[in-house]
Amino acid sequence: MQVYAYAVAGWLALAGALGIARSHNLVHAVVALSVVQSGTYVLLLSVGYQWEAAAPVFASGVPVTTPVVDPVVQAMTLTDIVVSATVTALLLALTIQIEKRFGTVDPDELRKLKG
């Protein structure tokens, strides 16, 4: 159980990278990149975890002395998610433009077209 969360993070990052390396479709590559980024979310949240600690929000009914998990890595994860979403949008816009210009989104086909 100790290493399980870290193993999931490493697995997501490597499986996503494998997806990018073997991709035959740029949309698929963009989705695989999102999988890699999900690995970083799991890694960050695992680093900040503490057994039997609450979420770092002292809403009414939660005394301020309650042990909480690390809010710094949670804030970093939130930043990570926002940046990942915007980068995904930009990459998909590029993919649309590539499809318009070359009529294909297969990276191997694109390399052949360039000669």
Partner: peptide, 8 residues
């Protein structure tokens, strides 16, 4: 109270 918001 929301520490994540405070960090961000």
């Amino acid at each position: 109270p929301n520490v994540v918001s405070s960090v961000n």
